[in-house]
Amino acid sequence: MIALETRALVKSFGAIAVTQSVSLAFEAGSRTALIGPNGAGKTTYFNLLAGNLRPDSGAVLLEGRDVTKLDATSRARIGVSRSFQRNNLFPELTVRENLALACALRAGKTTRFWRPMRGLKDVAGEAAEVAAQVGLTDVLDTPARAMSYGSQRQLEVALALALKPRVLLLDEPTSGMSPQETALMRGLIGRLPRALTIVIIEHDMDIVLDFADHIVVLDYGKVLDQGAPAAIRASQVVRERYLGEGGARL
């Protein structure tokens, strides 16, 4: 079954065509890495998938349903969740409060205005579960802004996970991380449930080759090539156009 699909997606900013007729299908439970040089249109394509941008033409389908006209909020409510390249947290809230808020939003409980938030035991339980999933149990009561950058990145992913999405979009989860933090994040995303459909933008080729079962190479807004990691590693076009001298590492 195909979880998420784009058909002939086009997006331009003025004269610059950032996404040029991109048609891709993401199988349910697949783990796809989007790679490509800076300016290839990876984040724009992500924004089109998540609903942060409207395409000029083309369609986005979630499990066969046309969601092109739905905004990011609506898509989040029906199972498409994303993390951001730059930390996008609630800085004054603790890890527990950050996650409880996300869980309460997902469960539709944030319209309740009569009983205290702390009384929502099921939400608190879910928040603790998500924290455990990403290894933040020890800092549950630390405000987000007081945490290390690496922990903040973990919380960034955890907030997206707390929505219990069917499709998870991860925008450079390791950006700006130290090697130790990167290793931690690599373990974290490697342990995500297999049933989850994941699309990841990542520059670290070790992570990409280790994590993804499908790689899509974007270049100037077009799909340059796609396939299994081994095929991409062997692709002459990719070596020439994108990997360049870095291709030697593959």
Binding site: A76, L93, A104, L105, R106, F113
Partner: peptide
């Protein structure tokens, strides 16, 4: 009481980061 409720916590979260609340389906 309202500010301590889930609704009030959502309002406070919107003050801190409205974009993330929207991304979380709020």
């Amino acid at each position: 009481l309202v500010c301590a409720s889930p609704f009030g916590r959502a309002l406070d979260a919107i003050r801190q980061n409205p974009h993330r609340v929207a991304a979380l389906g709020g």
